[in-house]
Amino acid sequence: MTVSKETKSTRDGYAAALLELGEKNENVVVLDADLAKSTQTEKFKQRFPERFVDCGVAEQNLMATAAGLAATGKTVYASTFAIFATGRAYDQVRNTIAYSNLDVKICASHGGITVGEDGSSHQALEDIALMRAVPRMKVIVPADYYETREAVKAVAEIEGPVYVRIGRPKVPVLFGEDYRFELGKALILRPGRDVTVLACGFMLHKALEAAEELAAEGLEAEIIDLHTIKPLDREVILASAARTRRVITCEEHSVLGGMGGAVAELLGEEMPTPMRRIGMKDTFGTSGKAEELVEHFGLGSRHIAEVARTLCG
């Protein structure tokens, strides 16, 4: 697979999925907290105003209200920025949504460092770790427009709480109209024998670009789209690690407790394998353009390639 020049944001994929869901399923309700224009729930709001509730600047209230709506049988999509959905409202998500096992799909945009100029207060770097630790919560980090659209549609049929991390920037289109999302099923996008590179979200196209660079040098990286962090696809990860004996994880999230943490836990227990985690190194973000920040924090394709060379060398 090669990286396309066409770009589209994952939040546009979210908006498209909500419109489809709204048409097909009268039970779908969408909630936001004064960020409808940013999270892209605005389009659903325009089309289905009677099934949209703006909770105002009150993210804790957003989550607890979403729980109550779900308790009346609704499938609720609750959106705000990832930092607020998982940080500010953590207790509501844990104690009222997840403990009650309610059908609330937390679709949070602006995950990761690529939020850019708004800076650290708005860059969620611990959200995957927080949500992954909550019992019953499933955690999905889709990589492009189509994967986001299909994942958001698919989770309507999955019982209980789900966290979907959506990004701000436009990213290359990797999949197409025929993409079908399957929870917990990692996808080998590019087979390779020398090193396994697991990536999610924004970082997937960076990993694919790194694989191109490495291939030119004769190093074959196996690129795996690990869109579901929980439940983790143990089989695919372990089988690939057994083949390559080297693993790299890539995420725009802290290296503590996120996707890299999940993979490290699995390999540590089942198949200790030399590995490197690429991500935010236990640090806050900063203001800057998304691509500048990717470069600044060592998340670019050349960084991935460099880590791969070192690990294989």
């Binding site: 804790q60 607890a64 209200t65 729980a67 109550g68 779900a70 308790a71 609704k74």
Partner: peptide, 10 residues
């Protein structure tokens, strides 16, 4: 807040 959600849903 959960009760508000229920009231909205009903």
């Amino acid at each position: 807040a959960a009760a508000c959600g229920m009231a909205l849903g009903l």
